[in-house]
Design a protein around this nucleic acid. Structure first.
Length: 110
DNA sequence: ATCTTGACAGACG
DNA sequence: TCGTCTGCCAAGA
Protein backbone atom coordinates (compact mmCIF):
# COMPACT_ATOMS: atom_id res chain seq x y z
CA UNK A 1 0.00 0.00 0.00
CA UNK A 2 1.08 3.59 0.18
CA UNK A 3 1.62 3.80 -3.54
CA UNK A 4 -0.33 6.88 -4.52
CA UNK A 5 -2.31 8.36 -1.67
CA UNK A 6 -3.83 10.93 -3.94
CA UNK A 7 -7.40 9.84 -3.35
CA UNK A 8 -6.97 8.59 0.20
CA UNK A 9 -4.97 11.57 1.33
CA UNK A 10 -7.94 13.79 0.61
CA UNK A 11 -10.18 11.46 2.56
CA UNK A 12 -7.92 11.66 5.59
CA UNK A 13 -7.70 15.40 5.25
CA UNK A 14 -11.45 15.87 5.22
CA UNK A 15 -11.79 13.59 8.23
CA UNK A 16 -9.41 15.81 10.14
CA UNK A 17 -11.54 18.79 9.18
CA UNK A 18 -14.50 17.28 10.98
CA UNK A 19 -15.13 19.43 14.06
CA UNK A 20 -15.47 17.69 17.41
CA UNK A 21 -18.99 16.90 18.42
CA UNK A 22 -19.90 16.60 14.78
CA UNK A 23 -20.32 13.66 12.42
CA UNK A 24 -20.40 13.20 8.69
CA UNK A 25 -21.29 10.50 6.25
CA UNK A 26 -19.12 8.67 3.75
CA UNK A 27 -21.28 10.00 0.94
CA UNK A 28 -20.69 13.59 2.06
CA UNK A 29 -16.94 13.13 2.10
CA UNK A 30 -16.99 11.25 -1.16
CA UNK A 31 -19.06 13.98 -2.73
CA UNK A 32 -16.68 16.61 -1.44
CA UNK A 33 -13.85 14.70 -3.08
CA UNK A 34 -15.81 14.56 -6.28
CA UNK A 35 -16.57 10.87 -5.97
CA UNK A 36 -20.13 10.93 -4.70
CA UNK A 37 -20.68 7.49 -6.18
CA UNK A 38 -17.55 6.18 -4.55
CA UNK A 39 -18.52 6.53 -0.92
CA UNK A 40 -17.15 3.03 -0.52
CA UNK A 41 -13.72 4.33 -1.42
CA UNK A 42 -13.86 6.64 1.58
CA UNK A 43 -14.25 3.78 4.00
CA UNK A 44 -11.86 1.77 1.90
CA UNK A 45 -9.24 4.44 2.42
CA UNK A 46 -9.67 4.25 6.18
CA UNK A 47 -9.36 0.51 6.16
CA UNK A 48 -6.17 0.78 4.15
CA UNK A 49 -4.84 3.54 6.37
CA UNK A 50 -5.51 1.39 9.38
CA UNK A 51 -7.27 3.93 11.60
CA UNK A 52 -4.75 6.74 11.60
CA UNK A 53 -4.79 8.70 14.84
CA UNK A 54 -4.81 11.80 12.71
CA UNK A 55 -8.00 10.58 11.12
CA UNK A 56 -10.99 10.62 13.48
CA UNK A 57 -12.80 7.92 11.59
CA UNK A 58 -15.11 7.54 14.56
CA UNK A 59 -16.74 10.76 13.40
CA UNK A 60 -17.47 9.18 10.07
CA UNK A 61 -20.63 7.14 9.82
CA UNK A 62 -22.84 5.92 7.03
CA UNK A 63 -25.84 7.83 5.77
CA UNK A 64 -28.00 6.20 8.44
CA UNK A 65 -25.81 7.71 11.15
CA UNK A 66 -24.87 4.18 12.08
CA UNK A 67 -21.33 3.49 13.30
CA UNK A 68 -20.79 0.80 10.73
CA UNK A 69 -17.04 1.03 11.03
CA UNK A 70 -16.93 0.44 14.75
CA UNK A 71 -15.86 -3.08 13.95
CA UNK A 72 -12.59 -1.62 12.75
CA UNK A 73 -12.00 0.12 16.06
CA UNK A 74 -11.15 -3.08 17.80
CA UNK A 75 -14.61 -4.57 17.82
CA UNK A 76 -15.42 -2.65 21.00
CA UNK A 77 -17.77 0.27 21.47
CA UNK A 78 -14.79 2.63 21.63
CA UNK A 79 -16.07 4.45 18.57
CA UNK A 80 -19.40 5.05 20.21
CA UNK A 81 -17.84 6.23 23.46
CA UNK A 82 -15.54 8.63 21.67
CA UNK A 83 -18.47 10.31 19.96
CA UNK A 84 -20.41 10.57 23.20
CA UNK A 85 -17.43 12.21 24.87
CA UNK A 86 -17.21 14.74 22.09
CA UNK A 87 -20.83 15.63 22.59
CA UNK A 88 -22.47 13.37 20.05
CA UNK A 89 -25.22 11.26 21.62
CA UNK A 90 -24.91 7.74 20.34
CA UNK A 91 -27.36 4.97 21.06
CA UNK A 92 -26.55 1.43 20.14
CA UNK A 93 -23.93 2.47 17.60
CA UNK A 94 -26.39 4.93 16.12
CA UNK A 95 -26.00 8.71 16.23
CA UNK A 96 -28.99 10.47 17.73
CA UNK A 97 -30.21 13.58 15.88
CA UNK A 98 -27.86 12.66 13.09
CA UNK A 99 -29.24 15.42 10.90
CA UNK A 100 -28.49 17.86 13.72
CA UNK A 101 -24.91 16.73 14.26
CA UNK A 102 -24.34 16.09 10.60
CA UNK A 103 -21.41 18.04 9.19
CA UNK A 104 -21.17 18.55 5.46
CA UNK A 105 -17.61 19.38 4.32
CA UNK A 106 -18.60 20.88 1.00
CA UNK A 107 -21.30 22.91 2.70
CA UNK A 108 -19.74 24.04 5.95
CA UNK A 109 -16.32 24.62 4.44
CA UNK A 110 -17.38 25.81 1.00
C1' DA B 1 -3.57 -9.13 -15.98
C1' DT B 2 -8.18 -10.82 -13.83
C1' DC B 3 -11.55 -11.52 -10.19
C1' DT B 4 -13.28 -10.48 -5.63
C1' DT B 5 -13.99 -7.59 -1.84
C1' DG B 6 -15.10 -3.24 0.49
C1' DA B 7 -16.55 1.10 6.97
C1' DC B 8 -21.82 3.04 0.90
C1' DA B 9 -25.61 5.16 -1.65
C1' DG B 10 -29.23 5.44 -4.51
C1' DA B 11 -32.59 3.35 -7.65
C1' DC B 12 -35.74 -0.25 -8.66
C1' DG B 13 -39.30 -3.97 -7.73
C1' DT C 1 -42.77 0.83 3.11
C1' DC C 2 -39.41 -2.72 2.84
C1' DG C 3 -36.18 -5.71 0.39
C1' DT C 4 -32.90 -6.39 -3.25
C1' DC C 5 -29.70 -4.97 -6.95
C1' DT C 6 -26.64 -2.24 -9.37
C1' DG C 7 -23.10 1.44 -9.72
C1' DC C 8 -18.67 3.54 -8.37
C1' DC C 9 -13.35 3.24 -7.91
C1' DA C 10 -9.48 1.21 -5.99
C1' DA C 11 -6.67 -2.37 -3.89
C1' DG C 12 -5.62 -7.21 -2.37
C1' DA C 13 -4.93 -11.98 -3.70
Amino acid sequence: MKANEGFFERVYEVCRLIPEGRVTSYGAIAKYLGAARSARMVGWAMNSSGNMDDVPAHRVVNRNGLLTGKSHFGGSDAMQQLLEEEGVPVKNLQVQDFNKYFWDPGKELT
